[in-house]
Write a protein that binds this DNA or RNA. Sequence first.
DNA 1: CCTGGAATGCAATAGTATATCAATGCACCA
DNA 2: TGGTGCATTGATATACTATTGCATTCCAGG
Lengths: 174, 174
Amino acid sequence: MTRQVVEDGSGRFAANPHDHESCVSDALARAEELCQQRGVRLTDLRRQVLALIWSGHRPLGAYDILTKLADERGGKAQPPTVYRALEFLQEQGLVHRVQSLNAFVGCNLPEENHRGQLLLCRSCGEAAELVDGACFEALERRAAEAGFKVESFVVELSGLCPACRTDGDEKGHA
Amino acid sequence: MTRQVVEDGSGRFAANPHDHESCVSDALARAEELCQQRGVRLTDLRRQVLALIWSGHRPLGAYDILTKLADERGGKAQPPTVYRALEFLQEQGLVHRVQSLNAFVGCNLPEENHRGQLLLCRSCGEAAELVDGACFEALERRAAEAGFKVESFVVELSGLCPACRTDGDEKGHA
DNA sequence: CCTGGAATGCAATAGTATATCAATGCACCA
DNA sequence: TGGTGCATTGATATACTATTGCATTCCAGG
């Protein structure tokens, strides 16, 4: 079984032309499996929200999701519906909250209870995930020296993804 | 000139009993000097907001600041007033925005255009700042390998500060 | 069945942030 | 001195983000 993984913790961005449908179905399949294993319920609603989040590789706001959800259902959905689904998905590690954008993005590594570093392109809005344990360990050690006990990390890097950087260069040479 | 520095980039938390007045006046004096040097205007309003932020070592929400500001002025202040002041103070490196709390905290190292790592105590709400260039360099290098150009960092660690950790232990032994 | 907890629906409201335009202040220069 | 132009502040409205509380439905286990 060869699986096309476009976000794998290497910080690689989804190449623009990729088989995105398999991206989505893949994420959903793994979510299904994971929830099964954990004995939690991936309900229709939660699956639907997860699918919406995976509709692209850029973080979506809760109200973006809300709108799309309402569309798919014929015009009715309330904020708590979305926020509750998001809460569940976060608990299961299936999505990350992006603090600096007030938005949510799918996570491709839900199995590991990792703390991801996010790379956020300020130009195209796409996100990629980096996993570097060494960085966290260093931070944790440094915090411990100050007597601080770390419980959760937020690491978000904003900048330009490879594609947008190139575009910018070209424009710059005009 | 010996100056009492309670936040110095070491991640040390302000000891509960410290001369906080000198903390505030110190921060204000340096802000004054810095703005002078840079040829930007630290107006009354901005100074007032900065002082409010420095009224403690825990991040304040914009609307907390707004309320206090209104108090000090006799009942009138609007959100944009506060947000504009905050924007200025951020640009000058005098305050940091805390993304994971939607709040703002004073920065004691405005001279260096550093990207601080914040330690946030979930119990008492106090914040301390860590400055570890190595961590940023590592992240930057890692991102660069993926072709990503980092422009700004958000690193926020939530957990328990030394004091609250001790309290927790004591309670735990009950 | 039927029952108890989880999940969802629904209405209201709380909390955070920005857009827009008018009025004022201040540095600079003629 | 007085004007000119830009930065700053005031004021109103509105957009965007998130939560509370309670009613209803669903569903696994007894």
